[in-house]
Amino acid sequence: MSNNSNKAVPHAKRIANADTDQYYQSEQSLHQHVDHSLAHQEIETPFNFRHCCWFCQEPSQLRLLFPSTKQRLIDCTHQAISVPICGECKSLAKTSQASDIYRCREQIKKALAKRYQKDLAIGKNWTKEELANAGFEGGSFEGFARSGWMMFEIARDRVNFSGWPLWCNGEQIEDTTLGKQFIFDGVAYSDLSQAVDFYVKTFGLHKDFFVECIKIIGVKRFGHAIRFARLYIGYSSKERREILNDLAITEQSH
C-alpha cells in the first residue's frame, strides 16, 4: 500500500483493523522463519475466542510458532506451541527474544502501548463526556471529538487483554509474568516501570523527579504522585531537590 493510501485510511479504522496485513505488513514480511522439524502443538482455544489473537483479542487468522528454532527451544520453559495471533502482534513478535510465550506477550504489550501512546493518552486528558461536549463541531478537531474516545477504548482493550489460560496436550503452561502487572486508572501495564514511562511521556514529567515522588509517596498513591509531579514541570534541578526534601518531611509527619 502506498503512503498516500495509508493517509487516506481514518486512524480509528486502522486501529480497529490492526490485524490486517494490508496496512501493517505484507504477507511476505510477516513470514516467520521457523524450523519446521519442531513439532509445534496447537494450544487449546475456548470457543468464544476461536477467532481471536491471544495477545490482544483482535481478529486472527495467523499463527505464531513459538519458539521458532531448536536453539531457542533449549532455553524455553515449555514445549513448542502454536498460538493464534493477529498481523500486527506477529510483526511485533518477530523481534522478541523471550524465553517463554508469556514474556513474549509482555514484550508485545509494551510495544503496543508505545505505538498507541497518543490514543491511550486520550483517556488521561479527557473523559468521554468532556470529549463529546468539547464544542469541536464543524472545526478541524471534529473528527477527533467523534472518534477519539473509541480510539482510546480500542487501544486500552487491546493492551488490557490478558488472553486465556494456556493448555497444551492436557498440561497448563505456567504464567511466568503473574503478579508483575501494574494496573492503574483502568489500564494494565506490564510493570510499574512501563506505567512510569507512559505518564512521563504523556504529561512531560521529569522522570527522575517523578520516580522519587513515587518512592516518597508510595506506589499505592500513584495517582497522587502524578498530580504532584505535574505541579513542578519546568523547575530546575535545585528547585526539584528542595521540593522533594519538603515532600519527604511532610510525608514523614503524617
Rank of each mutant, 00 (worst) to 15 (best):
residue 1 M to P: 08
residue 4 N to Y: 13
residue 4 N to A: 13
residue 6 N to T: 03
residue 10 P to I: 12
residue 12 A to C: 13
residue 14 R to L: 11
residue 16 A to W: 03
residue 18 A to E: 11
residue 18 A to R: 13
residue 18 A to H: 05
residue 20 T to E: 15
residue 23 Y to M: 12
residue 27 E to P: 15
residue 36 H to T: 12
residue 40 H to C: 03
residue 46 P to W: 14
residue 49 F to H: 09
residue 49 F to T: 00
residue 52 C to K: 15
residue 58 E to C: 15
residue 60 S to R: 09
residue 61 Q to P: 00
residue 62 L to E: 06
residue 66 F to N: 03
residue 72 R to F: 14
residue 75 D to P: 02
residue 79 Q to G: 06
residue 85 I to R: 02
residue 86 C to D: 08
residue 86 C to Y: 04
residue 91 S to A: 12
residue 94 K to W: 06
residue 97 Q to K: 14
residue 100 D to H: 02
residue 102 Y to H: 15
residue 103 R to V: 02
residue 104 C to W: 02
residue 106 E to H: 06
residue 106 E to Q: 10
residue 112 L to M: 14
residue 115 R to G: 03
residue 117 Q to H: 10
residue 118 K to M: 13
residue 122 I to S: 05
residue 123 G to A: 02
residue 126 W to Q: 01
residue 126 W to A: 00
residue 129 E to M: 03
residue 132 A to S: 12
residue 138 G to L: 06
residue 140 S to Y: 10
residue 140 S to W: 12
residue 144 F to M: 10
residue 147 S to L: 12
residue 148 G to I: 09
residue 149 W to K: 07
residue 149 W to L: 04
residue 153 E to T: 07
residue 155 A to E: 10
residue 159 V to Q: 09
residue 160 N to P: 07
residue 165 P to S: 08
residue 167 W to K: 12
residue 168 C to E: 07
residue 169 N to F: 04
residue 171 E to C: 05
residue 172 Q to A: 07
residue 174 E to Y: 08
residue 177 T to S: 08
residue 178 L to T: 07
residue 178 L to I: 10
residue 181 Q to N: 14
residue 181 Q to W: 08
residue 183 I to V: 15
residue 187 V to H: 05
residue 192 L to V: 05
residue 196 V to Q: 04
residue 196 V to I: 15
residue 200 V to R: 10
residue 205 L to T: 00
residue 206 H to F: 12
residue 208 D to W: 14
residue 209 F to V: 06
residue 211 V to F: 01
residue 213 C to Y: 01
residue 217 I to E: 01
residue 221 R to V: 00
residue 223 G to H: 02
residue 225 A to L: 02
residue 226 I to Q: 01
residue 227 R to W: 04
residue 231 L to T: 04
residue 236 S to E: 00
residue 240 R to Y: 04
residue 241 R to I: 04
residue 241 R to E: 14
residue 241 R to D: 14
residue 241 R to W: 11
residue 244 L to A: 03
residue 244 L to S: 03
residue 249 I to K: 02
residue 251 E to L: 01
